[in-house]
């Protein structure tokens, strides 16, 4: 029982990270209907930017952990946002309105570029980082097993919830959010009605990249080790989360992220660590077969 509770806590933490990345996938897919394959690599770039910032701040002698983390978060999110903007501008905008597969290949190309760019500029070695937020509380202990809730996990969950709340507010309450929703409904019509669609799409990429960078920071803090390849698997899983939740739906992305995080954690804990990815993907396949539009996706009636 205690063991299961511990897995639940770990799973939710991991799910939050996946959820944050999934939001970027789902928003981009909702608006321009493409799989932004490079999004996972933006997450990886965010993790590296965070690493550089933390190491740099440490060398500058800033010892206050909360201050360092807030500066790192803003810094990584800001520069990753620039990466998101640049990727859209270079690889996707020229292909807008083009046929379906070109942006996908272009995105795969961008993913390769980002991975190898980081590999070349930061080296192929795994980057370790010491624990920044140690400690936690013991919730309960039974059968000689203590359920730990670390400060780190609390920080990750709270940050994610704040960001998601802010983002939901942005989408539902602001003019930018309204443009985004209009573009999602009908890009062409939104353009005809005077919405600057290019700007809206750019901002969508920028926001998605910033969120992914925060997820990168969390990943770095949580696992304490990153390399240039983490973006691929995390990206595929986050996309899986987005599809699982119903692509285009924000709450769906978070729910899907949680589902993937929990499945993965419980599977690793009770069955086998090696096959945890297989478990996550198998659930995806099953959900899509029996619920083809995901958990919270709109059912689309086939118009004949």
């Amino acid at each position: 029982m205690a063991y299961a509770l511990q897995q639940l806590i770990n799973g939710v933490t991991l799910g939050m990270i996946y959820g944050l990345i999934a939001v970027g996938y789902t928003m981009v897919y909702g608006i321009i209907g493409m799989i932004n394959f490079a999004h996972g690599d933006i997450f990886m770039v965010g993790a590296f930017l965070s690493l550089i910032a933390i190491v740099g701040l440490g060398m500058l002698g800033i010892t206050s952990v909360p201050l360092a983390l807030i500066v790192t978060l803003l810094f990584a999110a800001g520069i990753a946002a620039l990466y998101g903007w640049a990727v859209e501008r270079i690889a996707y905008r020229p292909l807008r309105g083009s046929f379906r597969l070109a942006p996908l290949i272009s995105a795969i190309g961008m993913s390769i570029v980002l991975q190898n760019f980081v590999q070349v500029s930061q080296g192929a070695r795994v980057k370790p980082m010491p624990q920044m937020i140690p400690g936690g509380v013991t919730l309960l202990s039974s059968d000689g097993f203590a359920v730990q809730l670390s400060w780190m996990q609390i920080a990750i969950v709270i940050t994610t919830l704040i960001l998601l709340a802010a983002f939901t507010w942005l989408v539902t309450r602001t003019p930018l959010g309204r443009s985004m929703r209009a573009c999602e409904q009908d890009l062409k019509m939104a353009g005809l009605l005077g919405i600057d669609t290019d700007r809206t799409i750019s901002l969508t990429f920028v926001i998605g990249a910033a969120l992914a960078a925060v997820a990168g920071l969390m990943f770095l803090l949580y696992y304490g080790v990153i390399d240039f390849f983490i973006g691929f698997i995390a990206g595929v899983k986050a996309f899986t989360a987005a599809v699982l939740g119903g692509i285009g739906s924000l709450p769906g992305a978070v729910l899907g992220g949680l589902a993937i995080g929990l499945i993965e954690t419980f599977w690793s804990a009770y069955f086998s660590v090696q096959y945890k990815d297989v478990a996550a993907f198998s659930i995806l396949v099953l959900v899509l077969i029996f619920m083809p539009t995901g958990l919270l996706g709109r059912a689309d009636i086939e118009k004949v």
Partner: peptide, 21 residues
């Protein structure tokens, strides 16, 4: 060597932008 895949990725993006079809 290590720049090869970087160039490969860039070329992929460029080819798609120039000849999407």
């Amino acid at each position: 060597a290590e720049y090869r895949m970087l160039i490969f990725g860039l070329a992929l993006v460029m080819m798609m932008v120039l000849r999407p079809r």
